[in-house]
């Protein structure tokens, strides 16, 4: 449906875009995600089911479902380019390849670091186990390519490299040994994504000029999208505001 909103580009403009591989004149889409409403309290995670985990923390870890900071800033929102004809063409022409540098996901203190991350199809995901206890990394994409690997605790941190095969928003990753552990991977066929930090800030860099549908995804609060136009080198600022989902609102 967003196709109808989009301004059609002329043929010469598209070809000039295709030449802009170096992204020298690329733009930046940045902004914040915020939460509007009563801030929920996150429960402390009970780790007594594996005493090793409990021993790794002098203070409780809290669930990371909804983390709201000052002024309603919302952490762990995955912001990414959902659709764009320019990008599709570039992907089709093989101009975007997955980086060989891995994305690192660490398991430390029975907790995934990071909780939300983006990764490209085929890009190595270095899964590290810094704990001396077993974790199994159970990635459950719906589109295929699920994996479930056991990573026993060894005296030294160690890692295994995996990769996702199909793009998917979002692939849940969990540990069946420690059921509180959860992480989400945004698997894309391009590198234009960002995850909001504690201040709720995100920044998608190096975008070639063009029209983009940007979506923000939150594990509990749902998704929301906006269309932006990036001109040569000009930064674009947008913001996303999330509210309590309807189901929870009716409960309250």
């Amino acid at each position: 449906m967003f196709n109808c909103l989009r301004i059609r580009f002329s043929v010469p403009l598209i070809s000039s875009l295709l030449l802009a591989v170096s992204f020298s004149e690329a733009g930046i889409v940045s902004g914040t995600a915020t939460f509007d409403g009563t801030v929920p309290t996150m429960k402390a995670i009970k780790m007594d089911s594996d005493p090793y985990c409990a021993l790794q923390h002098t203070q409780s870890l809290f669930k990371e479902t909804v983390i709201v900071g000052e002024n309603g800033s919302l952490k762990n929102v995955f912001v990414y380019v959902k659709s764009s004809e320019e990008l599709d063409a570039m992907i089709e022409n093989g101009e975007i390849t997955a980086p060989t540098a891995p994305v690192v996901m660490d398991q430390k203190g029975c907790h995934y670091e990071p909780h939300v991350f983006g990764i490209m199809v085929g890009q190595p995901l270095e899964i590290r186990n810094s704990d001396q206890t077993l974790h199994n990394v159970h990635a459950m994409p719906k589109q295929g390519g699920a994996f479930n690997i056991g990573m026993p605790g060894k005296p030294e941190p160690w890692s295994i490299n995996k990769a996702f095969k199909v793009k998917e928003i979002m692939v849940p990753i969990k540990c069946d040994v420690h059921s509180w552990m959860s992480s989400f991977a945004g698997v894309l066929d391009h590198p234009f994504y960002s995850v909001t930090d504690a201040q709720g800030k995100f920044e998608i860099k190096d975008l070639p000029p063009g029209d983009y549908v940007i979506e923000a995804w939150h594990e509990k609060l749902g998704t929301s999208e906006q269309t932006v136009t990036v001109a040569d080198g000009a930064p674009v600022a947008i913001s996303f505001v999330f509210t309590k989902p309807a189901a929870e609102a009716s409960e309250a």
Partner: peptide, 24 residues
């Protein structure tokens, strides 16, 4: 020798895990 590298052939059999048997 739980989770220690299998001698000689470990690296070749289990390159992913650094030569140790994996739980699966």
């Amino acid at each position: 020798y739980p989770w220690q590298e299998v001698p000689i052939i470990g690296k070749w059999l289990f390159p992913e895990s650094g030569g140790t048997v994996t739980p699966e």
